[in-house]
């Protein structure tokens, strides 16, 4: 049985989404199975075209901070979030969208980028996936 990593992606902040996807793709590179659970604010990043429109968790300054950070990251040759999530999927990473959050925030399946989503589920799905995981994180 391959080792497994699960991450709850609760935050919608650019820096935290980066962390989740970098750790996730790193784990895939090490041969682990990886599932990311997008819930609450994090789920909003799966709305079509929304991924890289994320604010920064600190120094956002109404979006200027996020823009400056993305510019700085490009200069440092850091991969873009869109490329990163596609690499994550290409390497076999799974993404689960929280169906309870969809109800609470009024997000329909049609509004979400369904090409990224493998499954819809709630806490049971997370627990079921995580009960035999070697690493689980909440971001």
């Amino acid at each position: 049985m391959p080792k497994k990593l699960t991450i709850v992606v609760h935050s919608e902040d650019l820096d935290k989404i980066y962390s989740a996807l970098i750790i996730g793709s790193g784990a895939l590179s090490y041969g682990l199975n990886v599932t990311l659970f997008f819930t609450f604010w994090g789920l909003r990043r799966l709305i079509k075209g929304n991924l890289s429109k994320a604010p920064l968790s600190k120094y956002n300054f109404l979006g200027i901070g996020s823009w400056a950070m993305k510019r700085k990251m490009r200069k440092s040759k850091v991969i873009s979030l869109n490329e990163l999530i596609h690499d994550f999927k290409e390497l076999g990473g799974k993404i689960v969208a929280c169906s309870m959050t969809m109800k609470v925030l009024g997000i329909t399946k049609e509004a979400l980028d369904q090409s990224l989503i493998d499954d819809y589920g709630s806490v049971g799905t997370y627990i079921n996936e995580s009960k035999d995981a070697n690493i689980t994180l909440f971001i």
Binding site: S25, S29, I79
Partner: peptide
């Protein structure tokens, strides 16, 4: 060359596949 974390690992994994 010139690529930073996590791209070298991802490219390695892609090459393996």
């Amino acid at each position: 060359v010139g690529e930073v974390c996590p791209v070298p690992l991802i490219r390695f994994r892609k090459a393996l596949r």
